Amino acid sequence: MKYNNILLGQEGKILTITINRPNKLNALNKETIEELHKAFVTADEDKSIRVIIITGSGTKAFVAGADIKEFAHFDESQGATLSKKGHELLFDFIENLSTPVIAAINGFALGGGLELAMAAHFRIASTNAKMGLPEVSLGVIPGYGGTQRLPQLIGKGRAMELIMTANMITAEQAKDYGLVNHVVEQEELLDLAEKLAKKISHNSSTAITAAIESVNANFKNNVDGFEVEISNFGKCFGTSDFKEGTTAFLEKRRPNF
């Protein structure tokens, strides 16, 4: 499928999705969100793909925010619809994807860009990365999960401060806060992402899917995460990956998942 705003590149079991709007600092517009949705759906259905890396083109930005001119004149109903559709198509969709997603933050990740990175299963960043949720400076709040995921990742107090001040933080601050796992020089960022992705790809994809669902359950209202873990733990025993993994362990060899 041909895309206007994203680039796809697969190497082995790893797919890299690059948001490619460098003249707009890779800002998210409606078309880009829809293209990303289609790309993630296709990748999740492709059993040859074990890990997805998402990043931005160029050296300046991962995603510098949403394309404000698309919604500057929206009314209340249109604003709510924009947020709801974004959650369904991309942000909640990525969080609950059965294929693990790594966000490689290569510069500015602001507003919807940081929300996109937070929807991924974990994040790494380049030393020049800057992150923030500046929405209140525009008279609006984060609408793609920022008010929910940021407190989960860095705590309520720090999240409140970042959201209310609209300040940006550096990559090192983000690492200290627990927002990103690793910080490296920009030229090393994709290499690290691929190294981590390869390690993930060697493990059981069915077990990783179950782990994603179980971890996410802890953050859902009216869901007992322990019960989800117990159920998914039991289901693993009925998979061919469990048989292969335990057999390989007993035979002192690497499993072939």
Rank of each mutant, 00 (worst) to 15 (best):
L189F: 01
I33T: 03
V215Q: 13
N23V: 12
A211Y: 09
V101S: 06
L138D: 05
R254C: 10
L89P: 02
N96E: 07
S48G: 11
E229L: 15
L133K: 03
D46C: 00
N216L: 08
R50N: 13
F249T: 06
V184N: 07
A80V: 03
L36M: 15
R21L: 12
T32P: 11
L114A: 03
R149Q: 10
E229V: 15
L179K: 05
V228Y: 10
E31G: 04
K13M: 10
G178A: 05
N23D: 12
G58T: 12
D241S: 09
P255R: 12
V184Q: 03
S240F: 10
V184H: 08
Q152C: 02
D67V: 12
K199M: 06
K235T: 00
E187C: 00
A43N: 12
T127C: 08
V180T: 03
G111M: 06
T59R: 15
G9N: 14
K47P: 02
F93T: 00
L196Y: 08
F40V: 13
H73L: 14
Q10V: 15
K13P: 04
D191Y: 11
H182S: 10
K130W: 07
R158S: 08
K60V: 04
P255M: 11
I19N: 06
T32A: 14
K2E: 14
K85G: 01
A72T: 11
I53T: 05
N218T: 09
F108P: 02
I124H: 03
V183H: 03
